[in-house]
């Protein structure tokens, strides 16, 4: 594992159900499991290489996590086939395109495709 890579910590209510949820999302894979305070925490890698660490916690406050993608339209199509909850249609924003979905713990994930319009 490359420790120079930064991962985002995502607090979840139930690690097992979250893990099965993310493993069902196209492009997400388990990169590794690391031990923190005697507890194994899975690290997941998105299709674009972003890393998130799932940490189970009894009470959590739903968070917003931003991940990158290289193709929002494709991801929307693939996610839609998997009935990902809270999935929004891709929308055009100032820096490109983005879509959102929710994980079982209520965390909001924003998948963003950055587009450089300066040369376009």
């Amino acid at each position: 594992m490359d420790f120079n890579q930064v991962y985002q910590v995502v607090f979840v209510k139930c690690e097992e159900s979250s893990l099965s949820f993310f493993c069902n999302i196209p492009g997400f894979t388990i990169a590794e499991k690391i031990e923190i305070q005697g507890k194994e925490c899975p690290i997941l890698q998105s299709g674009n290489g972003d890393l998130i660490m799932l940490v189970e916690k009894a009470t959590i406050e739903a968070d917003t996590i931003v991940l990158k993608t290289d193709d929002c339209v494709r991801d929307y199509y693939l996610f839609n086939q998997k009935n990902i909850p809270g999935l929004t249609k891709p929308r055009y924003v100032a820096h490109g395109m983005e879509l959102c979905f929710l994980d079982p713990s209520g965390n909001r994930f924003i998948l963003t495709e950055e587009r450089d319009y300066s040369e376009a």
Partner: peptide
């Protein structure tokens, strides 16, 4: 050919 139509066509071409 600029802006979003360019990016979407590029993705389509790649597929």
């Amino acid at each position: 050919l600029k802006g979003n139509i360019k990016f979407n066509l590029q993705h389509l071409a790649k597929h």
